[in-house]
Simulated assay, not measured.
Amino acid sequence: MPSPWMPQALKMDIGDHAPCDPEFPAKAIAHITGDLTTTADDPLDLLPFANLKGFFTGSGRGKAPHILWDPFTGAFAQFFPATSRSKAVADKDGGTRTNRAGKVVIQVESLFFPHCRVNGKVFTRLVDTPCRGWDELHAWISSWDVPDVWPMGRPTSLSRNTCPADKWRAQGGWYAHAHVPENDHVDPGSWPEFGSQPPEPPLIEPRFEPFPGASFFETGRKSPVIAAMHGRLVAEDCGRYTSSTAFDVWGAGDVKSYTAWQEKLGFDGAAADGVPGPFSWDRLAVPNV
């Protein structure tokens, strides 16, 4: 049986579980967080992952999806198990059971809004981002028998195209928030491709970045290894970053976040100085880049 909790996600179980309707085929619903309204002439910085994680475990728990995904760092947080409905779409009493009509109805909120700015670069569409972690997310959702099809078509614009209720109940696959009955949203506007080959299951023994040595972590060092480390620290709830920019450059936010990781492992005093060592690095399990 596939895992109800995505292995790569930080488990943030908010409770209030409720069963899905297994007589209907498995589905996934694609969202963007859409936190801010911007234009090409007036972009804004992307909100930190921790802000949205805090929202969905706090005042926004009544709107929480299964998965919050940061496509810039590959970090994930999960609020409901796959076997429960989540609450990220409107679901009227006596209606089409939008949150439940499937063996699973896995809802994914990508941390993104059009014309968001990250590390000085502006991104208009979700598919323009690095989409870090998409392969892992897709593989986990596919393990729940969600087919690689868009019954209403893959989203390519921020426009509404409501799925008929009988089709919603009868056809499994991926749906945009813009397709879901009883809703009025137009997101996500785009979504990464499934790829030409079926996704492989998650590796039983993932490959990790070897410890690069303490001297590697000097102020201003830019590397995809640091970006991957950033994602893992956030996933371990040790992110102490105040900005989502320069996530691949070693700086003060990395030192504070790595200190939190060392303290989580039980280190204190001079042993929790924010500089990675081989013991803490190996246990962080930074994905191989």
Rank of each mutant, 00 (worst) to 15 (best):
V118Y: 06
T98G: 13
A18C: 06
P43A: 07
T38Y: 02
G266N: 00
W168H: 12
V186R: 10
G62I: 12
A235S: 08
D187E: 10
K53G: 10
T129S: 12
C163E: 07
F56H: 09
A77Y: 05
L46R: 10
V149K: 05
D237R: 13
D16A: 14
A227K: 08
C116F: 02
T156N: 14
A18F: 13
G15L: 03
P198R: 08
D268Y: 08
I32M: 04
I29A: 06
K103W: 00
Q171R: 06
P155T: 01
A270V: 05
S3L: 12
W261R: 03
P164S: 00
P25W: 13
G172P: 00
G15R: 11
N288E: 15
V180A: 01
M152N: 04
G253D: 03
F56L: 04
P224L: 07
F49P: 06
R160W: 08
P287I: 11
A235I: 03
L36E: 11
A252M: 00
F76G: 00
P164R: 02
W150H: 13
V89N: 01
G173S: 00
H66F: 08
D237C: 10
H31D: 04
A101L: 08
A64C: 02
L10C: 10
Q107S: 01
A178N: 08
D166M: 12
R207Y: 04
M12P: 00
F123G: 09
E109Y: 06
L52F: 05
G15W: 00
P206H: 00
V122M: 09
H185Q: 14
T129W: 00
W140N: 02
L284N: 07
N183F: 00
E263C: 01
W281G: 04
T33N: 12
G95N: 07
W150L: 14
A88S: 15
C116V: 09
V104K: 05
D45M: 06
V289N: 04
T242F: 00
V118F: 01
D282A: 15
E200C: 01
E218S: 11
G102H: 05
N161Y: 06
V105H: 11
P48A: 00
T38E: 11
